[in-house]
Simulated scan of single mutants.
Amino acid sequence: MRRTSRRLADGREIIYFDDTADAPERTAVDTRDLPEQAPHSEVRRDPLTGEWVGIAAHRQTRTYKPPADLCPLCPTSPGRPTEVPESSYDVVVFENRFPSFAESVPDVASTVDGMPMVARGPGRGRCEVVCFTSDHNSSFGALTPHRVRTVVDVWADRTEAFAKLPGVEQVFPFENRGEEIGVTLSHPHGQIYGYPFVTPKTSRMLEVAAEYLAAHGTHVLGDVLAAERAAGSRIVASSEHWTAFVPSAARWPVEVHVVPHRQVPDLPALSDVERDDFAVLYLEVLRRLDGLYNKPLPYIAAWHQAPVRTGRDLAWLHLEVFSVLRTADKLKYLAGSESGMAVWINDTAPEQVAERLRSI
């Protein structure tokens, strides 16, 4: 794989990852007249929960559902410059033009004015867009195993790069797919967030893992994985190095966890054979998900990996894929119990969903 770093017109970094032998040298220049970036992200700590909240008001003006012929993630064509100056690409990564967190944000006061109990800080981190293919009408599930392996290597590359940035505490690669999820750009792409804090979900998972280890001497996800493989009723697909299953306490109407058989903290720690194996298994999982309702399934695919500096011995890398679609034409809304109390009520039985996915 060839890696080429360039700069866009406003100074943002763009990196081309080429996995085809005849890919051209990446020398195209961004000809757009773009204003200098001036993100003003900050974070504020909720005094009632202790959780950090990002404030990024500049994102209100970000691109929203453009027509296909104006997609900013497609390659540049004559008379139509985009975020990608080249006329084609394999996989490309660039800094988000409307980032939730950025390296250049200004300092802010340490507390909110008049609220000394509300800690405040700059939203210092990094946000990148990952385009999986230059084909606007494709999808992650339509990629070849070779291309998926490239994407895994890109995720690992960016995880290592983010971890070296001052202030970044956690790296989160993810993909949003489908308007029902809230996607505003339909081109096949994902994102990577470098948070200036450890996220609430990861913090809680590490706490539980520590408690379980102290009580049982083993890792909770390792025991869950072994039990799921033994039971078999919630398994969707498996391979030599990975197992995909519907979790027994699934929150979402469609939810699949893809877990490596070996405990590793993050994507860079995966071996070559584990990366190759994931590419094949994940494509099978996505094919089954799209077959559930005989149409492209809207989903979020979220990588859970260790924070940069804490809990690395307790973390167990895994991917969670879930959808808000509870039937072919009905959405699962996060209403009173879920949004108000964070108590999830699932309208589907995990065992039945797993059986349906296996049958596809």
Rank of each mutant, 00 (worst) to 15 (best):
T82P: 02
S110E: 14
S359T: 14
V29L: 09
Q37P: 12
K164Q: 15
W303F: 15
S186T: 03
H146L: 13
R59S: 06
I360G: 12
E169I: 03
D272N: 13
R309S: 14
P24D: 09
G340H: 11
I300E: 10
A68V: 15
V168A: 12
R45D: 07
P265A: 12
R62Q: 07
V264S: 09
V105R: 08
Y195C: 06
P260M: 07
V353F: 09
L143D: 05
V236F: 06
S238V: 00
A214K: 13
A244N: 02
D272P: 02
T199D: 13
R358N: 06
H40Y: 15
F278M: 07
R7Q: 01
P66K: 03
P81W: 00
R32M: 02
P75H: 09
W52H: 13
P296F: 01
Q170P: 04
E228R: 10
Q170R: 06
E274G: 01
E13L: 07
R234T: 06
V105W: 01
S359I: 12
P173D: 03
A244R: 02
P188K: 04
F162H: 14
C74N: 08
L8A: 03
P145W: 00
A214S: 15
D276W: 03
Q170D: 01
T243G: 14
V129L: 06
M115S: 15
P296G: 01
W52T: 13
E255N: 08
A231Y: 11
V105C: 01
H40T: 15
H40I: 14
Q352P: 02
A163S: 14
A214D: 15
